[in-house]
């Protein structure tokens, strides 16, 4: 029985570690991909010509869809623009996209077109905080679950299969 127990515990530890690894990896990958795309100058959600001339129309269209109908695709959403185009300073903190010389401000200041988007909208993504919070929450849930589940159900025979299905 002791042996079986150990097996189950080890499997569980492995699973927890895999989850932790998976989460960390996914966040790292996401951040990395965004960084990489920015560095590579990967094409935006539409060809540059269209974006230059029509980003306002695209944003307005998306705005009404999201606001009025609850359609939350991200391709033309302002939050998506900000997530890709925001810059970080030397300390690794986001610089607001409407700060001088930043993505939105650089053109809009040059062309003297005032925008009021950022009277209301956030100028940096909340991704870092929310991703951290998400990882923490997921980890604590996972660990709590693994610790509270009965390890052995009946006379030494672990119902590994059932536990697996319950996940």
């Amino acid at each position: 029985m002791v042996k079986v127990c150990n097996q189950v515990v080890i499997k569980r530890i492995v699973r927890v570690m895999a989850s932790v690894f998976g989460l960390l990896f996914s966040v790292a990958l996401l951040a990395d991909t965004l960084e990489q795309m920015r560095a590579d100058g990967v094409q935006c959600v539409e060809p540059t010509e269209i974006m230059r001339k029509q980003h306002m129309e695209l944003l307005l269209h998306q705005r009404d869809l999201t606001m009025r109908e609850g359609i939350r695709t991200r391709q033309h959403s302002l939050n998506q623009c900000i997530e890709c185009h925001v810059q970080k300073n030397n300390q690794g903190d986001y610089i607001p996209v409407n700060a001088p010389e930043q993505f939105c401000a650089s053109c809009h200041n040059f062309t003297s077109v005032a925008i009021d988007c950022f009277d209301c909208h956030a100028t940096t993504p909340d991704l870092p905080q929310s991703a951290n919070a998400l990882i923490q929450q997921a980890l604590s849930e996972l660990i709590a679950q693994e610790l509270t589940l009965p390890i052995v159900k009946r006379s030494g025979v672990p119902e590994l299969h059932n536990i697996e299905v319950n996940r």
Partner: peptide, 16 residues
């Protein structure tokens, strides 16, 4: 691609 990969990993790990 990355997202799918990590989703697969997290799912395999038992993350709801």
């Amino acid at each position: 691609k990355g997202a799918t990969a990590c989703a697969a990993i997290t799912a395999a790990g038992g993350f709801r």
